[in-house]
């Protein structure tokens, strides 16, 4: 099969799989709702039980949409970072972006006690948390870039990311020491990752952030392809490296930052999904990888969310599921690394 026909086939299959998983997500959970009733609720038709319609529209639909947004955003930001850092192990979680966002949120939730009371409402609103998380993750990414320019070794960048991770968790630890039980509980719930607690307002803010991040990523597709040759070749092809770097940092910062703010730090999606996309599509062309990573990210997070519903009466934290699924995938990838160098 020639590559372009193979790609169209893969994209079509992926699209169907995504829709299928989306509907499954609406159907499964603590109560199983028949697919027919799911369709009826979505189309505003007659539903045999009004509770079903209520569950689908007010609980499961927002959760499934959040899963799609989070999966897309994290995976694409991982793809961008792997190319920018020329490192197959780069990703928003590994490079410490998620910990940066955590630190921002920790300052806001746990550190609120240090601020004047009249500021609490503003800071603790969704906007405040999003801003803090985006700020935190962008800051860490800038620091990683700064350090990586002094270190030519791309492996060292990962170690720097890990160090930022432990540094931020230490600061979070110090902050928890000074916070109330209520604040601590709020932060702990946030840090376990949660796709299900977003209001429609929050979802629209998240959609806007993810959309901006994805558009910026799409705009850097050509530059990312140039970067596959290494920075010196890229420069010789007329690439404005400083500008491109800034664009990619901003795109990943807003994607990882906003997502971590709303859904908590979610591990492994950003690292593993681009690799799975590369394995399936066998290409490095970012015009193909962008869309395949986007669709696969959404599908895989929907799948993880389905798995998290396994214990029928309660749901597992999503971060635990992505780690349980993702960590073996990464190890497996490393072992067969020779296949895609």
């Amino acid at each position: 099969m020639n590559p372009s026909r193979k790609n169209s086939f893969l994209f079509l299959a992926l699209g169907f799989f995504l829709v299928f998983l989306f509907l499954l997500n609406l159907s499964f959970g603590s109560v199983t709702i028949p697919i027919k009733a799911v369709f009826a609720s979505l189309s505003g038709g007659e539903v045999s039980k009004s509770t079903w319609e209520y569950i689908v529209l007010n609980y499961r639909l927002p959760k499934a949409i959040t899963a799609v947004l989070v999966g897309m955003g994290l995976s694409v930001s991982g793809l961008l970072m792997q190319t920018l850092f020329r490192n197959p192990l780069a990703g928003p979680y590994v490079l410490g972006l998620s910990s940066g966002a955590s630190l921002g949120v920790a300052f806001v939730i746990l550190g609120a006690g240090f601020l004047p009371v009249f500021l609490h409402d503003i800071i603790l609103s969704s906007y405040g948390i999003v801003l803090a998380a985006t700020f935190g993750s962008t800051l860490v990414l800038l620091l990683v870039i700064l350090v990586s320019q002094r270190l030519r070794d791309t492996m060292a960048i990962l170690i720097v990311g890990l160090m930022f991770g432990s540094f931020t968790s230490a600061i979070v630890g110090v902050l928890t020491f000074f916070s109330t039980a209520e604040q601590l509980q709020k932060f702990t719930f946030w840090s376990m990752g949660n796709l299900g607690s977003l209001s429609w307002t929050a979802i629209s803010i998240l959609s806007a952030c993810v959309l901006i991040g994805l558009l910026l990523s799409l705009a850097s597709v050509k530059s990312l392809n140039t970067l596959l040759l290494g920075e010196n070749y890229a420069k010789s092809l007329g690439l404005n490296l400083a500008k491109v770097r800034l664009l990619i940092i901003f795109a990943t910062g807003i994607l990882a930052g906003s997502i971590t703010a709303f859904a908590g730090p979610i591990a492994f999606i950003g690292l593993a999904v681009p690799h799975i996309a590369k394995l399936f599509f066998q290409t490095s062309n970012h015009a193909v990888l962008f869309w395949s990573t986007l669709l696969m990210g959404a599908a895989i997070l929907l799948l993880c969310d389905l798995l998290s519903q396994w214990p029928s009466d309660t749901a597992l934290p999503i971060n635990a599921v992505t780690s349980i699924v993702g960590a073996p995938v990464v190890i497996w990838l490393l072992i067969r690394k020779r296949n895609y160098h």
Binding site: R86, P88, L227, L228, L229, G230, N232, K278, Q282, T283, S284, Y340, H341
Partner: peptide, 8 residues
């Protein structure tokens, strides 16, 4: 210089 790892 060597090319970075990729599927090119």
């Amino acid at each position: 210089e060597k090319l970075p790892p990729s599927n090119l």
